[in-house]
Write a protein that binds this DNA or RNA. Sequence first.
DNA 1: AGCTGCCATAATGATTTCTTATGGCAAGAG
DNA 2: CTCTTGCCATAAGAAATCATTATGGCAGCT
Lengths: 280, 280
Amino acid sequence: MARDLEIVLLRSFVTAVQVGSISRAATTLGHTQPALSQQLRKLENVVGRPLLHRSPAGVSPTRAGEELLPYAERILSLSLQALTETGRALTGHCGVGMLEDLAASRLSQALADLARLHPGATLEVLSLSRAAMREAYDASRVHLVLDEVPDLPGPPRWTVRRPLVWAVGHGVEVTADPLPVVLFSNTCAWRTSVLETLERTERPWRVAFESNSLVGVLAAVRAGLGVAALMPGNLEPAMVCHDPNALPALPDVELGLARHPRTEGDPLINAVETALRRML
Amino acid sequence: MARDLEIVLLRSFVTAVQVGSISRAATTLGHTQPALSQQLRKLENVVGRPLLHRSPAGVSPTRAGEELLPYAERILSLSLQALTETGRALTGHCGVGMLEDLAASRLSQALADLARLHPGATLEVLSLSRAAMREAYDASRVHLVLDEVPDLPGPPRWTVRRPLVWAVGHGVEVTADPLPVVLFSNTCAWRTSVLETLERTERPWRVAFESNSLVGVLAAVRAGLGVAALMPGNLEPAMVCHDPNALPALPDVELGLARHPRTEGDPLINAVETALRRML
DNA sequence: AGCTGCCATAATGATTTCTTATGGCAAGAG
DNA sequence: CTCTTGCCATAAGAAATCATTATGGCAGCT
């Protein structure tokens, strides 16, 4: 069998062409000049063609050398990629439970990016009711839960505070008495916070619409049925309230992440948790 | 610097995975079993991960081994391609003069394929009048000419005989008297042959259309203006004559190739001539 | 003419790689 | 249970390879 190319020789060749000198390539690669000279002669023997014009001014590639260069560069690139990526992709499965409000945000995109980096892994985002989420968590179908702290199925490993904002439907009078409110159904997002806020400010209100789905809530607000409390990332431009004093100030929401104890040390879960924390 | 991958080791790895045994891979590659065992261990050291499950039943790739495999195969493929193609591409320019009838055939495709194999070369196909072709040949703009033997600008290096067929327009009565004929203009293809055939068989005819362009001739035949003599490769299905005795049998055409004497030894011209001869 | 910086070759010592010899393991047959 | 077969791993030694130092030749510059 004819001799194989050698990656170390290709690297010497590419470097010599790049710097225009065998001597300087040798220095660059940590060898002596005769060693590089011999390596390049060896490569030329393997290829069966002169690859370099040599002169006291240095070296330049021959026509065959120019033809070999793209191959050499691609082989070097593939080789590096093979070395850095083999055996380092994460695998396994991670279930992430989170509020639909959060699921609609950049968090899902961040998890999608993570999934692309680790094609051997599967990420699953679930938006469930409080009870169903706890059941899934206890059964290890969900490994991480991102929710308001009181609703977490386990102790939070860390928490963050995030603001809420009013979303106002088209044509809705924000000074209306009573105020038409669009709410998430029981066990869904911020219902308690919103109601407590309205009670504390003694602002009369009525339930104009209820849904356990963010899509439903957004549709109702769009339709002008009332106002709703949302995370800023879900606020559509037409829903921005232009009278900041007409509606009571909403308190921040305190989000936390619960992690199933049996996932300690799992590199995939570690990576997902890190990604969630970074994106919040 | 971290050690490089080695193509010879990748080859051993790929072979071992393919045959499922280090011993049999060793035999396949012309080495002893301990040599292959050591090579694979060396590769695993370089990559930093176990690549093979080993057992008395043979070997199978680990997850990291499966990840490395596509890289290894691509590097081996690129390496082989680099070895076989570097310094072997033809360069230069070749002008080929040929009848438009021929230019529209598989010959042009063959030349296009040749051009793809040798991106450093340029091929130019010209369909010129007899006088213009001779002028281009004498000026070395055209290096090869493929034409009827009497029309060649120089002595033919070889000749072949090829049949002609009648192309019949839609709705054209092949028994019409006189027969409407679509002809190439003076100095173009087969005009003399066709006219001699019609005279010899005493079949009355008239010129229904004339063009110095194959596209023009084909358009006229398609339009039902008459019949034309074409090479079989240019016959469209709707033009096939279904009454083989109604029209006089056309004689074969004798094609030859003339080569400019100053191109002797030019590898590109050699390759083009070989391709033309093979495709006719 | 002398100096500088380039590349090539020779000789030598160190390292690598292949071989043969041998050992351990698992599975199958008797 | 014993023996055989076929697999992989390791040790030791010989051969080949590879890097170094030493040195020579060439072209260009001062």
